[in-house]
Design a protein around this nucleic acid. Structure first.
Length: 424
RNA sequence: GUGAUUGUAGCUCAGCUGGUUAGAGCGCCUGAUUGUGGCUCAGGAGGUCGCGGGUUCGAGUCCCGUCUUUCACCCCA
């Protein structure tokens, strides 16, 4: 029996981890500059958290959750987290984070679990980085979150993206618009496809999202939610757009952008890339003022956030030719031993130099000098030091620069400082 | 869940209508006169042809099942 990864899961191998670290470091760096702190929550939660938070009619909750009982006789139901926002809000409420500071700004880099059929840019265990800004109802928060997300992509060098922007208004607006949309669609009901007919009652806004080309014209001519906005949402949206203009963040208004999770209100946004195939969303987010109350808060808790798929970002980095430029770190020096006695010396010296901060390689296979040199070259070491009986007796060492092929004789006591200055 | 698609050395792939010990490139290892890498040359290791059945004198090649890969629908990051 050969073991292998479960369908929809992936190993991140040593050859790829540099790229992952590069993405994570870039994200952390931007988050830090915006004053966001990291939050880490458990990978599993009470199933009800997601039922309440995400919405029971959504596909995520309806058919994509990994739900299990901690033991056969237990009443409890647990679920591997399919997204982070509900967990973050749960932590915010549980620890009364809002009582300590009026605005709580957190980010995460986490793995999530959804039992979907895998395809390009979609896995059953996948990674997201994202941020939540909790406590401000003002458009400044929306603008900042969007700008922060865009800055990460910008610093990673991602081009060919489109930022889509829309506003869903407040809850009243959505209710009102829902009726308006249904009234518009009702005379055309027979023309709708099966999926859209299904959505007509349950979630008519999703019909706008349909990829069916036959419905294109119908959807184009549908009444737009932006024209139905309440006054507060309208001016909120205008202010968000003004800030984005000021920041130089480019966007397009997309009337069809209706985010899938129930808790969104007002601002909704999505960053799409043409490099990605059918799953074209690199990241997305929006305002979710209603979530806190859904999870049991006494009053409305205004909040806005975004989430980005790391595997999808990887695809975009790949097609932009950026991923190949991120190389794994290379050793400063390879210590090459020519005899058993020399091997003892290089082991001790390697240990000492590593404490000094150098990246030092040695051959663990006791191979020939030639093989050790080959290894040094393969690893991309800057220097090789060849250590044999002569060196140990005379205290004079051959320091070879593998990048230039220059070799010179150095006194033992000067080796470390020479290598340090030349690799700094 | 539905519909397609893939599966041969570590990697990328050949293998014609079923026929003797399954190949290439890259990578890996060793060597090219005894203490020196990268290029070149020579040699070498490495494969239950996803797995299980079946057809056949004979299957990597045909059939069935199963798992897996990839892509799309659905949905989403």
């Amino acid at each position: 029996m050969k073991f292998q990864t479960i369908t929809g899961t992936k190993d991140i191998l040593p050859s790829e981890s540099s790229l992952w670290q590069h993405i994570e470091q870039t994200a952390r760096s931007v988050f830090k500059r915006f004053g966001y702190s990291e939050i880490r929550t458990p990978v599993f939660e009470d199933t009800n958290l997601f039922l309440r938070g995400i919405g029971e009619t959504t596909d995520i909750v309806g058919k994509e959750m990994y739900t299990f009982k901690p033991s056969a006789e237990s009443e409890e139901s647990l679920t591997l987290r399919p997204e982070m926002t509900a967990s973050v809000m749960r932590a915010y409420l549980q620890h009364s984070l809002g009582a300590q500071s009026p605005v709580v700004k957190v980010y995460y880099i986490s793995e999530l679990f959804r039992k979907e059929k895998p395809q390009k840019g979609r896995y059953r265990q996948f990674w997201q980085f994202g941020a939540e800004c909790i406590g401000s109802a003002n458009p400044e928060a929306d603008a900042e979150v969007i700008a922060m997300m865009m800055m990460i992509y910008d610093e990673l060098g991602i081009k060919n993206t489109t930022l889509k922007l829309n506003s869903l208004g407040d809850i009243e607006t959505r209710k009102r618009y829902r009726t308006i949309l249904q009234d518009y669609l009702r005379p055309h009901f027979d023309k709708l496809d099966a999926v859209s007919k299904e959505r007509f009652e349950k979630n008519p806004l999703r019909i706008l999202d349909s990829k069916n080309p036959d419905l294109k014209e119908l959807i184009e001519n549908a009444p737009r939610i932006l024209e139905c906005l309440d006054e507060v949402s309208k001016s909120h949206f205008e202010t968000v757009k003004t800030y984005l203009d000021d920041f130089g963040v480019k966007y397009v208004i997309d009337h069809r952008l209706v985010r899938g999770l129930d808790y969104y209100s007002r601002t909704a946004f999505e960053l799409v890339s043409s490099d990605l195939g059918a799953q074209d969303a690199l990241g997305g987010g929006g305002r979710y003022d209603g979530l806190g109350e859904q999870l049991g808060a006494e009053k409305e808790i205004p909040a806005v956030g975004f989430a980005s798929g790391i595997e999808r970002l990887l695809i975009a980095l790949e097609s932009a030719g950026i991923s190949e430029k991120i190389q794994p770190p290379k050793p400063d020096v390879m210590l090459v031993a020519q005899s058993p006695l020399a091997r003892g010396w290089i082991m001790k010296t390697a240990q000492a130099w590593r404490k000094e901060g150098l990246t030092v390689e040695t051959d663990l296979l006791a191979r020939s000098l030639k093989a050790q040199m080959r290894e040094a070259n393969r690893l991309g070491a800057t220097f090789a030091v060849i250590v044999g009986e002569n060196e140990l007796q005379t205290g004079k060492f051959q320091l070879k620069n593998l990048l230039t092929s220059e070799q010179k004789e150095i006194q033992q006591e000067d080796l470390l400082s020479e290598i340090k200055t030349r690799t700094a």
